[in-house]
Simulated scan of single mutants.
Amino acid sequence: MANLDLTPRLGPDLNFVRKEMAAAERPPIGVGGLTHWLRTNLFATPTDAALSILAILALVWFLPPMFDWLFINAAWTGSDRTACITVAQGGLQPANWSGACWPFIHAKFEQFIYGRYPMEERWRVNLTAALFVLLLVPLLIPRAPYKKLNALLFFVAFPVVAFFLLVGGSLDLSYVETPLWGGLLVTLVLAFVGIVVSLPLGIILAMGRRSKLPVIKLLSVIFIETVRGVPLVTVLFMASVMLPLFLPPGTNFDKLLRALIGVALFETAYLAEVVRGGLQAIPKGQFEGADSLGLSYWQKMRLIILPQALKLVIPGIVNSFISLFKDTSLVYIIGMFDLLGIVRQNFSDTNWASPETPATGLIFAGFVFWIFCFGMSRYSIFMERRLDTSHK
């Protein structure tokens, strides 16, 4: 049998080898475009098609009347309730007004923001808000320089400066007692302090619950389960009513400070469980690898374990922050007027007593809450995508 020559015979002209990139072509018909998107996302199956049609019909039924009520038939100008009632034959009579009462929001807007904070001192609130934004925005931008300095200023220096600006009593600033605070000011103060205090305490409690030291673990479990077993309203009542009973007689413990302590401790217990879930999701090999490098416990947690665990539980952490921001409205029960509380308080103003005033005020408050909560949600999604490097 003759030997076969299997060596490929390559001539000088290699016509079958592409020397440049092929030009991009349009996607096949039915794979791209609006039709494909609708078929894939809304009408993929008969069930999806039925649900999509029902949702579209619900939107068509609900959105036009809502738009008319909010904008088309709404009252936009006026100085009292007469702007928000209909003119009937025989004189002005209250009736079922078919639109929102936006003059009420315009007239009470500053009160919704500042509460009863003295008008001549509100520049201090504005300055505090400006400092907050100037320090927060660079901290949220991943590539912004001087991150450590920025974090030190935001989490350490800013709370001290904000305290002296808002409370006063020194540096030639008049003293403004906290019962005069209200509106969005109180909502943001409660949310900011609760978030800044609860996150590090929650991390410590999560590590304490996973500790091998029986006393540390027992104390952490008792605190977490006790606080999680009661509603926030109970915690606020305890902080407002019961806590002063355990202090020496004559001790003046500010009500806002009591609420801050109650909100922060309540949120700490929930964040501790969120972080603990992230710690349990870390593979055992990560702990063993850190031990093999000779790292101490705190070096292991700070450099290897916690960065991975916190990245895994970003949705849970942000969900807790959003819940905390909305739960600040519960301080209305203990006599403090946050944004929602001060909106509700103004419903009793006889100058603006009209059928549509309560609905307009509640929609305004809900929209403000939605803006902050939606912003936190979108930023958390951005950070998830940025930090999701495990499968790239």
Score class of each variant (00 low, 15 high):
Leu4Cys: 03
Leu4Glu: 06
Leu6Val: 00
Pro8Trp: 08
Ala22Val: 03
Pro27Ala: 07
Val31Gly: 05
Leu38Gln: 05
Leu38Arg: 04
Thr40Leu: 07
Pro46Trp: 09
Thr47Asn: 11
Thr47His: 12
Ala49Cys: 08
Ser52Val: 00
Leu59Ile: 11
Met66Trp: 13
Phe67Glu: 14
Ala88Asn: 09
Gln93Lys: 00
Pro94Glu: 00
Ile105Pro: 12
Ile113His: 03
Ile113Arg: 04
Tyr114Cys: 14
Pro118Gly: 13
Pro118Tyr: 13
Arg124Tyr: 15
Thr128His: 15
Leu131Thr: 00
Val137Thr: 11
Pro138Leu: 08
Arg143Val: 08
Ala144Cys: 09
Ala151Gly: 05
Leu152Phe: 15
Phe155Gln: 05
Phe158His: 13
Leu173Gly: 02
Glu177Trp: 06
Leu180Lys: 12
Phe192Tyr: 11
Ile195Val: 02
Leu199Gln: 06
Pro200Phe: 01
Ile203Ser: 03
Ala206Cys: 01
Arg210Leu: 05
Pro214Leu: 13
Ile216Cys: 02
Leu218Lys: 04
Leu219Gln: 07
Ser220Ala: 01
Ser220Val: 00
Ile224Met: 00
Pro231Leu: 08
Ser240Gln: 10
Pro249Ala: 14
Thr251Cys: 11
Leu256Arg: 08
Leu257Ala: 10
Leu260Lys: 08
Leu260Gln: 07
Gly262Leu: 05
Gly262Met: 05
Leu271Ile: 02
Ala272Trp: 10
Gly277Glu: 06
Leu279Ala: 06
Lys284Ser: 09
Phe287Met: 01
Ala290Pro: 06
Ala290Gly: 10
Ala290Val: 07
Ala290Trp: 08
Asp291Glu: 13
Leu293Gln: 14
Pro307Ser: 04
Lys311Val: 14
Ile314Lys: 07
Asn319Cys: 01
Ser323Gln: 10
Ser323Gly: 14
Phe325Asp: 07
Val331Phe: 01
Phe337His: 05
Asp338Phe: 08
Gln345His: 11
Asn351Arg: 05
Trp352Met: 02
Trp352Phe: 00
Glu356Thr: 04
Val368Glu: 08
Phe372Glu: 02
Cys373Trp: 09
Cys373Met: 12
Phe374Asp: 13
Gly375Gln: 10
Met383Trp: 15
Glu384Cys: 02
Leu387Gln: 07
Ser390Ala: 11
